[in-house]
Design a protein around this nucleic acid. Structure first.
Length: 908
RNA sequence: GCCGAAGUGGCGGAAUUGGUAGACGCGCACGACUCAAAAUCGUGUUCCUUCGGGAGUGUGGGUUCGAUUCCCACCUUCGGUACCA
């Protein structure tokens, strides 16, 4: 029996690849390129767990396969190394984030190398490296110094912006600010006093911080914003040509949230004020029975009558104190106050009351709505509660309903709408806009859910924003030659109580001079969010040592777009939307030819953890086994899965791990064992369910690990981690190995001519594997190899002409073993330089086919016919068949369906 | 609530264009080797069965000669989203 010494083999070839620079990529214009990208990891302190490599293995297989197919492949890797965890760790321990980040990266790299990935490490990027974030800052300045030209529908340098004449200096400045793609504004943010920073929405869960669970409040603060809303239409429309999962495209569309409708002006009674509303249902204008302003709407205090002022003021201040969570709680009933004032409905002149309520959001549309209780469920509930009229203006058939139990939000036929009664509501939508436009009370309009991007964090461990605040209150760019603005060393990583970044405490860094006039000035102390670095890393890989440009034009021209991008679905919206936005800005400014960065996108599923639980009886140190826990009041506690095997707890180790007094710890067992409960959850250190690849690689090797993660199921599907089937994959590799070795372990491959059957097996496999890689179906590719090896083993085939092509075909999946066998076959250069074997249809051709013969769709017999046999002959033979005759019982069949190469079906 | 994905043996999963459901692997059972065990190899393995056959891809209907695949309604699980006018 030949021994498959994976540990030696893998070490040997990893060293070979490193020493010979096998995976170094050149920009070679004469070759077809293929750019394959992984979402780069955040280098956390826990290292790589088994979920990380799933996508990386898939891309590595494709990268190796494409090389064999003759492509010039770019397959780089880097680290998203700015971010909150490193900073939190620094606050706790005082260790500098730069140090811990570097250590974590080293560990990640080591783990990635052990898995045998074919990255070109000479192109590695780290977002926290000053040579990298110099260009992140440079791009920020491009945004700062550009505006969006709505006519040409693209970004242009701010110098080209036509500024209205006769503006004062101050007006000119604010005109510029209102056009720049990066600008400052006062907005409501999630402020977490305990962490001393603003948090992104996704970092706030249920009103408290995701990390630590500290209270988060809403606070108005001056922040940098990026004008992503200027790109709303293009971000939707350009999705069309992308080869992305439909679900991701849809999420992005929904996130941008384009809705078409109309803006309508309602005159305030006895006043010159107008309230502008946005509606998608201008066809329900005749059903408007009241209006609602958001509590923050600027007109609220102006129009509120003396009589109602106190109650309205109270409502406004109460609404301001509510957390987002309270305001968006859908279960609560509607609240609101009447302002005492009325508006005039522009289509029928009716007077309608103006209310305020927090179900109208200041941040969407115009912050005011026309309320149509007959057509909108929210308005309906509000009207019911405050006894406001409900008018039905659309019904499915144009007849009024007897009772109105709820709003009818659908399309239909108009009623109670004056001269428009009987019109189809879809048609009326158009008609009414024409009338509003003619009368000057409204116009067609498009609204977006997408907001401008809040681009500042009050943190240390991020890119400094490269601008300078002058004495006279202006903001100027740091000159390009002075980039990067490097993070200063600090003693303390916490921000100030007032909500300033830790950088604000570093006077020597903050105080600088205005590059324009040399007067004293101050640096911006906020830093960029973690998304910034990942917005453009795929560009830097192309030219990571360039000191004069973010990447040379001829390199971006050649390599872009990314041909295949694989990563987790959790980045469906934010990262992918932000990166597309930056890409389009760079495209508009002429730096990049292509309008989209990522041509094909695949989301790999999440590998979940299987957590184990023990059950402690409340207030005691007694632990009760899973099936007895219902007899007690218990707390379920996560237990480290390393102390559990097959859901049975290792009681002794568990006892040692507890902090309680060990004498007091007791167990209530069943059948002498302590059975743990389990749950499938996210794999995470805090849930004690993390599995690292290390132990598995030690036991089975990296090739087995790679193959097993692929064999687990479809790449896109999420699945809990288990190692139940890993033996099967390991056995397969050993059998493959054995095909090249005699029974006593000596390498032995013959030059005998293969049989037709051996050719057929091999060529079928080569074709199947190729097709499966092309459609990212890696699990079925692995099983195709298994079938092939099983058959060749049964044939005792040890022939070079069969085995050599299979080594090449397997090399993307199990590169170490492939290299070893390739060398043993007598080759002196790496298998990565081989060509993917072509398959010959001739070998697979079949002259006959075994047809399933079914009667009324039920399989009854099988018969083999020549493929060129006429249908009439097949029919005759089928009907003559004994089994078939038994089933037809002499009856004449109504119909016989013969599908060549498929099936014969007899209908009786 | 809305949007999306998915429900197939004991388990992970396969069936690519509507054409033999359960490939491949795990597990399990039996056998070989062994003093024995492990490892390895071989055979079997959807369920029910009166051994003729019958049922079967979440449930109920439909289209079709034929449905895991297409259509309608519903149930369950997972993910996203949250009063978006």
């Amino acid at each position: 029996m030949a021994e498959y010494k994976f540990a030696d083999i893998e070490k040997k070839w990893q060293q070979y690849w490193r020493e010979k620079d096998i995976y170094k990529t050149q920009t070679d214009k004469d070759k077809l390129k293929y750019y394959i990208l992984d979402m780069f990891p955040y280098p956390s302190g826990t290292g790589l767990h088994v979920g990380h490599p799933l996508g990386y293995i898939a891309t590595d297989i494709v990268a190796r396969y494409k090389r064999l197919k003759g492509f010039n492949v770019l397959h780089p890797m880097g680290f998203d190394s700015f971010g909150l965890p490193a900073e939190q760790y620094a606050i706790k321990t005082g260790r500098h984030p730069a140090d811990t980040t570097r250590e974590n990266i080293e560990r990640f790299k080591e783990q990635l190398c052990v898995l045998g990935f074919s990255y070109d490490w000479s192109r590695e990027v780290r977002t926290s490296d000053p040579e990298y974030y110099k260009w992140t800052q440079w791009i920020f300045l491009k945004l700062f110094n550009s505006y969006y030209d709505k006519k040409e529908n693209k970004a242009r340098p701010i110098e080209e912006l036509e500024i209205p004449p006769d503006l004062t200096d101050k007006e000119k400045e604010s005109y510029l600010v209102s056009h720049r793609l990066a600008y400052q504004d006062d907005i409501m943010v999630n402020w977490c006093p305990a962490l001393g920073t603003v948090l992104a929405n996704e970092e706030v869960i249920g009103g408290v911080s995701e990390r630590g669970g500290f209270l988060v409040v809403r606070k108005s603060m001056k922040q940098w914003m990026l004008r992503i809303t200027a790109y709303a239409d293009r971000l939707i429309d350009d999705l069309e040509d992308l080869d992305w999962p439909d679900s991701i495209k849809l999420s992005q569309k929904n996130w941008v949230g384009r809705s078409t409708g109309a803006e309508v002006d309602f005159r305030v009674k006895d006043s010159n004020d107008r309230i502008r509303v946005f509606t998608t249902r201008q066809d329900t204008l005749f059903g408007v029975t009241y209006m609602v302003l958001a509590p923050e709407h600027p007109l609220v205090s102006k129009i509120t009558t003396h009589e109602h002022r106190q109650k309205v003021d109270e409502y406004v201040s109460r609404a301001g104190q509510k957390s987002d969570l309270e305001r968006t709680d859908l279960d609560k009933s509607k609240t609101g106050e009447f302002t005492g004032t009325y508006a005039i409905n522009p289509v029928n002149g009716q007077e309608i009351p103006i209310w305020i309520s927090d179900y109208v959001l200041i941040s969407y549309g115009t912050g005011a709505i026309m309320a149509v209780p007959g057509g909108d469920q929210r308005d309906f509930e509000f009207a019911k509660k405050f006894n406001i009229d409900i008018v039905e203006v659309i019904s499915p058939d144009g007849n009024p309903s007897e009772t109105l139990e709820q709003a009818y939000p659908g399309e239909g036929i108009m009623l109670n709408s004056g001269e428009y009664n009987g019109l189809d509501s879809r048609r009326f939508k158009q008609v009414i806009i024409e009338r509003l436009e003619k009368e000057g009370t409204g116009k067609a309009s498009i609204n977006y859910k997408l907001r401008d991007w809040v681009f500042t964090r009050q943190r240390y461990w991020g890119e400094p924003i490269p601008v300078i605040h002058t004495e006279d209150g202006k903001v100027v760019s740091v000159p390009e030659k002075d980039l990067p603005v490097v993070l200063p060393d600090v003693d303390s990583f916490t921000g100030t109580k007032e909500g300033e970044s830790p950088l604000a405490k570093v006077d020597s860094w903050v105080n600088t001079i205005n590059p324009v006039d040399g007067k004293p000035a101050k640096r911006e102390t906020n830093t960029m969010p973690q998304w910034a670095g990942s917005c453009w890393y795929y560009l830097r890989y192309l030219d990571n040592n360039n000191t004069t440009e973010f990447a040379a034009k001829y390199k971006t021209d050649y390599w872009l777009p990314v041909d295949l991008y694989i990563g987790g679905a959790e980045h469906a919206v934010l990262h992918l939307l932000y990166a597309r936005f930056w890409h389009k800005v760079l495209h508009d400014l002429g730096y990049i030819q292509q309008k989209e960065p990522f041509k094909k996108l695949i989301n790999q599923g999440m590998i979940q953890g299987r957590s184990n639980f023990v059950y402690r009886i409340k207030g005691t140190s007694k632990y009760v086994s899973y099936n007895l826990k219902n007899e007690h009041e218990v707390d379920a506690i996560h237990v480290d899965i390393n102390l559990v095997k097959d859901d049975i707890l290792d009681i002794r180790s568990f006892k040692k791990s507890r902090t309680e007094n060990q004498e007091e710890v007791e167990f209530i067992l069943e059948d002498g064992k302590y059975i743990c409960g389990y749950e499938i959850e996210k794999m995470s250190k805090s849930l004690l369910n993390v599995v690292t690849p290390d132990a598995i690689i030690e036991k089975y090797g990296a090739d087995t690990f790679r193959l097993y993660e692929m064999f687990l199921g479809p790449l896109e599907q999420s699945k809990p981690w288990n190692t139940n089937g890993i033996d099967g994959v390991f056995k397969f590799l050993r059998k493959f190995w054995n095909l090249f070795h005699s029974e006593n372990g000596v390498f032995e491959v013959s030059d005998d001519k293969p049989t037709a059957n051996e050719f057929k097996i091999t060529h079928k496999t080569i074709r199947k594997v190729q097709e499966d890689i092309e459609r990212a179906s890696f699990n079925t590719a692995v099983s195709a190899f298994m079938i092939c090896v099983n058959e060749l083993t049964a044939q005792k085939c040890h022939k070079r002409e069969i085995l050599e092509p299979l080594v090449i075909a397997l090399s993307p999946f199990a590169p170490h073993m492939a290299e070893e066998l390739w060398e043993k076959l007598g080759h002196t250069s790496s298998v990565t330089g081989a060509a993917y074997p072509s398959y010959n249809e001739e070998y697979m051709r079949e002259d006959t086919h075994e047809y399933p013969i079914s009667i009324n769709g039920k399989l009854r017999a099988k018969m083999t016919f020549a493929l060129d046999m006429p249908n009439a002959d097949i029919e005759k033979q089928v009907l003559a068949n004994e089994v078939i005759r038994k089933w037809t019982e002499g009856k004449t069949p109504k119909k016989i369906i013969i599908v060549p190469r498929r099936i014969v079906n007899i209908v009786v």
